[in-house]
């Protein structure tokens, strides 16, 4: 007799429960709150029963006409795209470097790898604080003191806030700080993938006459295709929603409040700011972010042919 309920469900239940409680329910709630005028956590105030499109209208209006929100949008786009490129290309470059070092028999790679893992292993506050001191506006800032000692500048520079450097100063700081955190992810994935390529393939390519550049372009990178897709999509989604480091940098005044904020941080501040907070608007903004993230994710997978990777192999194997 066939059981009416798939027995797999039984095993999936604990995980499904967790996902439902901590992911699906909040998501639904959040989307719903986006359609209500909830503010200042006034849950008993009857706001939750008023369904309205007002938040979306306000957001649209702000994006169109509020220059500060325009800055946040521009920062989000630039920060996400540039940091993503740094993460993926940097991770790829590091993984290839280490792999080629291994091939030539140099045993540097373990220490090298650990070094790049440090930003991820360091607590966010400590890591951000380090960069805060690095970009400190005064003479005691590390970057300033180095640049002054080298004679590149005469006066200390306020890297993240100086109007002459904005928005690029603030953007550069965000990219550097977050780029270094994300780079190790791509590095680990790509390096592991490279290590799983049989050594004989490398030898065969060499015997076929491949230089190191040929090897990288024609043998190694093509085989990393799916890994690059995966890392790109994963990092894209996490960069769209990251705000922890940025929050601290803005909070400590290392970067300009608007040129240094991304959409996710804006949402966070709207929802959880001390004093006046606007959960309805924040939820609507978060919903838009989720939609954009999902859309971009699907688009990226499409572009890179994810469907074909998951397809059944053709012919006899």
């Amino acid at each position: 007799m066939r059981p009416r309920v798939n027995p797999a469900l039984f095993f999936l239940l604990p995980a499904l429960t967790l996902i439902a409680v901590f992911y699906v329910v909040p998501l639904a709630l959040s989307i719903y709150i986006g359609f209500t005028p909830l503010r200042n956590w006034n849950i008993a105030g009857g706001y939750l029963s008023q369904v309205t499109l007002e938040n979306y209208e306000r957001l649209f209006h702000m994006v169109m006409y509020d220059p500060d929100i325009g800055k946040v949008v521009a920062t989000t786009v630039v920060f996400t795209v540039v940091t993503l490129a740094v993460n993926v290309l940097g991770g790829l470059a590091l993984a290839l470097t280490m792999y080629l070092m291994d091939l030539s028999g140099r045993e540097l790679s373990l220490g090298f790898r650990t070094l790049w893992m440090l930003p991820r292993m360091t607590p966010i506050a400590v890591y951000s604080l380090m960069w805060y001191y690095f970009f400190l506006p005064g003479e005691e800032g590390i970057l300033n003191s180095i640049a002054m000692r080298l004679g590149l500048i005469d006066e200390p520079v306020n890297w993240g806030n100086d109007p002459d450097l904005l928005p690029y100063g603030a953007w550069a700081i965000l990219v550097v700080v977050n780029g270094l955190v994300g780079v190790s992810f791509g590095m680990v994935v790509f390096y592991a993938a490279l290590r799983s390529i049989p050594r004989e393939q490398i030898v065969a390519a060499r015997v076929d006459g491949a230089s190191t550049l040929h090897l990288v372009l024609y043998i190694l990178i093509p085989q990393l295709r799916w890994h690059i897709t995966y890392v790109t999509v994963w990092q894209l989604l996490s960069l769209l929603t990251t705000y922890a480091h940025i929050f601290l940098l803005v909070e400590w005044g290392a970067v300009d409040e608007f040129w240094g904020s991304n959409w996710a941080l804006y949402v966070f501040n709207k929802a959880f700011a001390l004093g006046e907070s606007d959960q309805g608007l924040a939820a609507a903004a978060a919903t838009i972010l989720v939609l954009i993230g999902a859309g971009l994710g699907v688009l990226a997978l499409r572009l890179m042919g994810f469907g074909r990777m998951m397809a059944e192999p053709r012919g006899e194997v």
Binding site: E200, Q201, V203, A204, V207, D208, I219
Partner: peptide, 15 residues
Amino acid sequence: NKRNVGLVFQNYALY
């Protein structure tokens, strides 16, 4: 690449 040898492996090592 300057020796012009052909090499065949046990595990074929096709790309």
